[in-house]
Design a protein around this nucleic acid. Structure first.
Lengths: 324, 324
DNA sequence: CTGTTAGCGCCTTCAT
DNA sequence: ATGAAGGCGCTAACAG
């Protein structure tokens, strides 16, 4: 800035002002400064700016996995919203691991982000302590709790399982199965489905649980397991559309009709859900809305407005298509 | 650090040393300092550190889309590798837009990253200028050029199209079609396929081009378009596995046998490719390897070693399965 | 509208 | 092994 200022015949501060608030500088000097910037190829040092102003314009975001479309969709919508306000996103992957999350929180906090986007509501005690001490807005996305750190944006996972069980009952299925992946929230949905089904006197629930991530191959293997357990047909509740699709493929490969013999209920309403044959009946959650709501929630305090709601339940909806 | 130091009975510098290189501090004082840190909940300010040392330990990464598994897979592998060395990733989405990329490069550069990960080899002149002026290692991933800014890691896109056309010829298909999405590199693969097919005297190529991103629905619509043009059966070259899968679903929905009447060749070898029915014959590229190679390439100069190769062609391979 | 003076919190260099 | 001084590049007051 010093150099640019000399070239434009002004002091360093004036250059700073020209960049941060052009209206504070006369049009004539502004022009000279802009020319000097163009000539020198000057790029302001945001680190120094952040240090001096204690506003980094950096937002920290932690997701379990960036290759999982569920999380990347939320982050995408969130980023777009925040970038419009001039913020940049520091993104890392926790791998569904609380210890890893704790380390990442410490690492991110050392860069003095202005706010933090976290996935889920379970964090280590030490993590919560650091977050509280940092005194920045924290938004927990993809789940709901009565006691968020600052804000939470999501839906009730157990409720989706209950709704699915009701749906299965209403449709008159005699047998039901559950195929779910290792994610804690996925399990919670499956467990709630089982409880509600049993509560209604529905009898045994066939189950296939995978310790790993949801894949088509696991969906196929999942149906196989149910069949081996004696499942002869009915509705299969899956913790994701990908698993649901896998179940459908395996059913067809074995000559079982979908939904005639094997009906499938997915989760997520991912883009492919209504493009496959038959289109998948699924639990829809609006991922982009979660991202946008998270952005709006943190922008409140970031602008000094602490009046927004702390708990934002965006709900879900069962979309009935052909598969169940 | 001042405060921590006072608590531990040492000066601020000693605290700094204890954190950056514990071996430079005596075990006794180190213990005292660590206790003081635990008591105060001190979190070092990486901004100040970066400003003073001009090493931000920050890597800038720009991808067209974070929800696209192709890019997120590369970034995932890249991040893991860089994080092991203590670097953090500033990630943004360009939306396949060169202007947007230019703006993002400027924004990222102002945070003084130690290196930059870029997708593709086409950047605006102004972007190249800024990158050169920044004097940091730049790695361009997912494509190959003779004149990278610093390094490029990828494969020859046109070559995959040629190889696919040869494959189609070898298998004796009489008619071929191409379904491709809007990405410039996807088009390049499709164009090369068409040229090679025509060069070999293969006759007309039926084509369906989508201006948008690759989806299952577009795959289905793509086959429809080919059929409308008079395509009666043969091999369909798709610019992604997702499109290929869509073509397969549409074929089945119309009672066309895959691969008997409609054979399908995908691209990417995504995890689902061998889990669908029939498993998809596809062009495999090792996304994780690209990410790792990109990390290794930039870690060279970051450690002061300028001896590594500038152009890293990791190639591809056609994986023959049942769909073609 | 513009300049002056102090830091922001840390690292680097040079002493001790 | 530890400390003192200076500065990284910028912003925040406060003057004029």
């Amino acid at each position: 800035m010093e150099t640019v200022g000399r070239l434009a015949g002004v002091s360093q501060v004036t250059v700073s002002r020209a960049l941060s608030d052009p209206s504070k500088v006369s049009p004539a000097t502004l022009a000279k400064i802009q020319e000097a910037i163009a000539q020198t190829g000057f790029v302001p040092n945001a680190l120094a700016g952040a240090l001096a102003s204690s506003k980094s314009m950096l937002i920290s975001a932690l997701v379990p996995s960036i290759t999982n479309i569920v999380y990347s969709s939320m982050v995408k919508a969130f980023s777009e919203e925040m970038r419009r306000e001039g913020y940049e996103i520091l993104l890392s992957e926790t791998g569904f691991n609380a210890e890893e999350e704790e380390k990442l929180i410490a690492a991110h906090l050392s860069r003095r982000p202005d706010a933090m986007f976290l996935t889920g509501i379970h964090h280590s005690a030490q993590a919560r302590r650091m977050l509280l001490a940092a005194e920045i807005p924290v938004v927990e996305v993809w789940d709901i709790t009565d006691s968020p750190i600052d804000f939470c944006v999501g839906f009730n996972h157990a409720e989706t399982g209950r709704a699915a069980a009701e749906y299965a009952r209403r449709k008159g299925f005699a047998q039901v199965g559950v195929v779910s992946a290792g994610d804690e929230r996925a399990q919670r949905r499956g467990d709630a489905f089982v409880r509600e089904w049993e509560r209604g006197g529905g009898g045994r629930v066939y189950r296939a649980f995978f310790d790993a991530t949801a894949t088509l191959a696991n969906g196929r293997a999942g149906l196989l397991r149910l069949l081996e357990q004696g499942f002869t047909g009915g509705l299969v509740h899956c913790s994701s559309d990908l698993l649901a699709h896998g179940v459908m493929i395996e059913a067809r490969a074995r000559g079982l009709d979908v939904p005639g013999q094997i009906a499938v209920l997915g989760f997520g309403d991912q883009p492919f859900a209504d493009a496959v044959e038959p289109p998948i009946t699924t639990v829809r959650v609006d991922l982009a809305a979660f991202g946008r709501a998270a952005a709006q929630a943190m922008l409140g305090p970031l602008r000094g407005d602490r009046s927004g709601p702390a708990i934002i339940d965006l709900g879900f909806e069962i979309v009935e298509r052909k598969s169940a």
